[in-house]
Amino acid sequence: MSKGWDPAIADLDGFREAQQLAYRCAEAIADELTPGMTEREAAALMQHWLTANGANDCFHQPFAWFGDRTAFRGFIGFRHFGGFNPAFYPGSRKLEENMPYILDCAPTLNGYTADIGYSGCIGENRILDKLMDDLLEYRVLILGLVKQRKQLSEISQAVDRLCAKHGYEPRHKAYPFQVLAHRVEKLEADERKHRSVLNFGVRNIGKLVSDVAKGRREGWSPLWSSGHASDHPPTPGLWAVEPHLGFRGVGAKWEELLVVTEEDAFWLDDDVPQVRRWLSRGLEPLAKAA
């Protein structure tokens, strides 16, 4: 176990800045989306915005999913090869009125990496609204169980059960390794532009791989899922948590950094779009608890 991890205030501020940058990017591009735009165009807009605003590396380059691809229906839901599926990459699907979309970006700013997910639609979509409302319960559930130091696999299974109760499909199971969350680590801060391979940032993936090796020795995994590899209490550090729900042809998610310390846990930042949305829709007091 990575003992003695004590989040330095400066480090948390750095991660918070990166996460705010990522959410600002999603909101800015969401404003620019118009019917007819393709996933590739939206992803390119995000990439351009992030580069222009100081990001010089990433965990992964921006993803954008439109329509039933938000629920990973069809080919994109193909789960073999451990979830590594080229259909995840932004494609030529065109945005339409009332169609759900998900923007997902993971920029690195001054060596601090965030990973966020943002759901929305142009127009109205009742199913999407309901999914996004219900996503609040997941934020409360996950934090509560982490604070109780439950095993990560147990927490992920509790998420699966909540999905079953809600009648949703846990679509994060379609991610590589069926992860509900993954670790992010601090990188060296510099000004250079860093490389990505197959849309994934080399440095960040390198960190993840070394976490996997380290975790194997110490009995934990940086890839948080319902499986046995996650049969361990919450490991101190930063976790990008991304519950992703699907119902019929509509999917929605949020993704945020969770800070786990030796004794406690908290969401890195409560001033994020989904929490603001829950508060504005009067979903208190649950939203406050989140």
Partner: peptide, 13 residues
């Protein structure tokens, strides 16, 4: 509660 949830989902459709 489970039945109500199913009904709620059906209404969404």
């Amino acid at each position: 509660a489970a039945a109500q949830r199913s009904a709620e989902l059906a209404e969404l459709l």
